[in-house]
C-alpha cells in the first residue's frame, strides 16, 4: 500500500476517534443536545397547523427541511470552524510535521464532520418523528433518496467549508459568517415552502445547497401528496442532483489548491503570532 493510502487509512481512524471524543466531551454533548432542542422548538410552535393544499402539517414540512439544513450547516460551518481553529491552535502544524500527516488530517476531518452531521441529523429526527405525524412513513423507495442525497450533500458542503476555513484569518471570522448563513436559511424554504416567497428570492435561494438539501430530505421523508407545496409540484430530483453536484465539483476543484496554499504557509512563527493575538483578545 502506498504511504498516501496508508495515511488516508490512519485518517479514517483519526476521524472516528475524534467523533467518539465528541460523545464524551461535555461541551460537544451539550452542542448536540442544544441543536436538537433548537430544531424541536419550531416544530412545537408550528404544531399541527395544516400546510394548505399539501395534506401535511407545517411541523411535518419543517422536520425534514430542518434535517437538510442541519446537513448543510454542519458540512459548511463546522468544517470551516474546525479548520480555522486547528490552524490557530497548532493541530495543522503538527499534522504537517509528520509524513503525510496532512492527508491523515484531511481525511480525519471529513470522517469526523460527516459523522457529526449524521449524529446532528439523527437526534432531532428520532425526537421529531414522535412530535409530528406523517414523516418517514413511505418506506423503501423514498428512503433510497437519502442514500444519494446525504452523501452528495456532504460532498457539496464540506469542500466549501474547507475553502472558507482556509481563507478566514481566525475562528472568530467564521462566527461572523454565520449571520449571512442564517439569513440564507430563512429564505431557503426550511420553515415554510419556498413558493410563498417572491420569485427573485426563490431564485437566490435555489443557487445555494441549503434549499436543495431541504428539498431532498422532504422528498425522502414526506408522503407523496406533500409535493403539492413544492415549486412546480415536483421533487426535482434531477435539479437537486445537478445543483448539489455542481457545488461538489466546484468545491472539490477549489479546495485542494486552497488547502495546499494554506498548509504551505503554516509555520511555527505564523502560529505563535496568531496565538499572541488570540491571547490578547482573551486577556
Amino acid at each position: 500500500m502506498s504511504p498516501v493510502w496508508y495515511a488516508a487509512g490512519l485518517g479514517v481512524r483519526r476521524g472516528w476517534t475524534e467523533l467518539r471524543q465528541t460523545f464524551t466531551t461535555g461541551q460537544d454533548v451539550f452542542g448536540y443536545a442544544l441543536w436538537t432542542v433548537l430544531v424541536m422548538v419550531p416544530l412545537f410552535l408550528a404544531g399541527d397547523d395544516p400546510l394548505k393544499g399539501a395534506g401535511i402539517s407545517a411541523g411535518a414540512f419543517m422536520l425534514p427541511s430542518l434535517l437538510g439544513m442541519t446537513l448543510a450547516f454542519t458540512g459548511m460551518t463546522t468544517t470551516a470552524q474546525l479548520l480555522a481553529t486547528e490552524r490557530e491552535d497548532g493541530t495543522l502544524l503538527r499534522a504537517k510535521a509528520v509524513p503525510h500527516g496532512m492527508v491523515g488530517h484531511l481525511v480525519g476531518k471529513i470522517v469526523m464532520v460527516s459523522g457529526t452531521a449524521l449524529v446532528s441529523m439523527a437526534l432531532p429526527f428520532a425526537a421529531g418523528v414522535f412530535l409530528v405525524d406523517g414523516v418517514a412513513r413511505q418506506g423503501g423507495g423514498a428512503l433510497l433518496t437519502l442514500v444519494w442525497v446525504i452523501p452528495l450533500g456532504l460532498l457539496a458542503t464540506l469542500p466549501i467549508g474547507a475553502v472558507i476555513g482556509s481563507l478566514v484569518s481566525s475562528p472568530r471570522t467564521v462566527g461572523l459568517l454565520m449571520l449571512p448563513v442564517m439569513g440564507l436559511v430563512v429564505v431557503s424554504g426550511i420553515y415554510f415552502p419556498l413558493s410563498e416567497l417572491p420569485e427573485w428570492l426563490q431564485t437566490v435561494a435555489q443557487i445555494f445547497p441549503v434549499y436543495w438539501l431541504g428539498l431532498g430530505l422532504r422528498a425522502a421523508l414526506l408522503p407523496s401528496e406533500a409535493v403539492a407545496a413544492e415549486i412546480g409540484a415536483s421533487w426535482q430530483h434531477l435539479e437537486t442532483a445537478g445543483v448539489l453536484g455542481a457545488w461538489a465539483v466546484a468545491g472539490l476543484l477549489l479546495a485542494p489548491s486552497v488547502l495546499r496554499r494554506m498548509a504551505r504557509r503554516e509555520s511555527g512563527a505564523a502560529m505563535a503570532e496568531r496565538r499572541q493575538k488570540a491571547m490578547q483578545r482573551v486577556g
Binding site: P3, Y6, A7, L10, R13, R14, T17, E18, Q21, T25, E86, D89, G90, T91, L93, R94, A97, V98, P99, H100, G101, G104, G268, M271, A272, R275
Partner: peptide, 26 residues
C-alpha cells in the same frame, strides 16, 4: 512544536500512538 491547546480531547497514549503510526511505512 510548542503546543498550545491542540488535541486537547486526545489522551496522551492515544495521540502518540496515532502520530507514531504515520512513521510505520518508513
Amino acid at each position: 512544536l510548542q503546543s498550545w491547546r491542540d488535541h486537547g480531547k486526545w489522551r496522551v497514549r492515544e495521540l502518540l500512538a496515532h502520530l507514531g503510526s504515520y512513521y510505520a511505512p518508513y
